[in-house]
Amino acid sequence: QVNIAPGSLDKALNQYAAHSGFTLSVDASLTRGKQSNGLHGDYDVESGLQQLLDGSGLQVKPLGNNSWTLEP
Rank of each mutant, 00 (worst) to 15 (best):
G33S: 04
S29T: 12
S29G: 10
A18R: 08
E71D: 05
N3G: 04
Q59I: 14
P72S: 09
S20Y: 15
L63Y: 07
L24S: 03
N66E: 04
K11D: 15
L70I: 15
N66P: 01
A12G: 03
T23Q: 11
G64C: 07
V26T: 07
D54H: 14
V26F: 15
Q1N: 12
Q35L: 13
S47N: 08
I4Y: 01
T31L: 14
L53W: 00
Y16Q: 01
V26L: 10
G7D: 07
S8D: 13
D54A: 15
T31C: 10
S56L: 09
S67D: 06
G64K: 05
G38I: 02
P6G: 09
L52Y: 00
Q15N: 07
Q59M: 13
S47A: 12
H19Q: 14
S29C: 15
G55T: 04
D42Q: 13
S67V: 15
Q50V: 11
L9V: 03
L39S: 01
D42W: 15
P62M: 10
S8L: 09
T69Q: 10
N37V: 09
D27H: 08
H40V: 14
G7L: 03
L53E: 00
T31D: 06
L9E: 02
R32C: 15
A17H: 04
S29W: 12
P6M: 07
V2K: 01
P72A: 12
V2E: 03
A12F: 05
N66C: 08
Y43E: 03
K34S: 02
Y16L: 06
G41S: 02
D42R: 13
Q35I: 13
I4M: 02
D44L: 06
F22M: 08
L30G: 07
W68L: 04
G33L: 04
L70E: 01
H40G: 03
L13R: 00
H19K: 09
V45A: 06
S47E: 12
G64S: 07
Q51A: 14
G7C: 12
S36I: 02
A17T: 05
G33V: 02
S67R: 12
N3I: 11
L39H: 01
S8I: 05
D10L: 12
V26Y: 15
I4L: 05
G57C: 11
A5F: 09
L58R: 00
G64W: 04
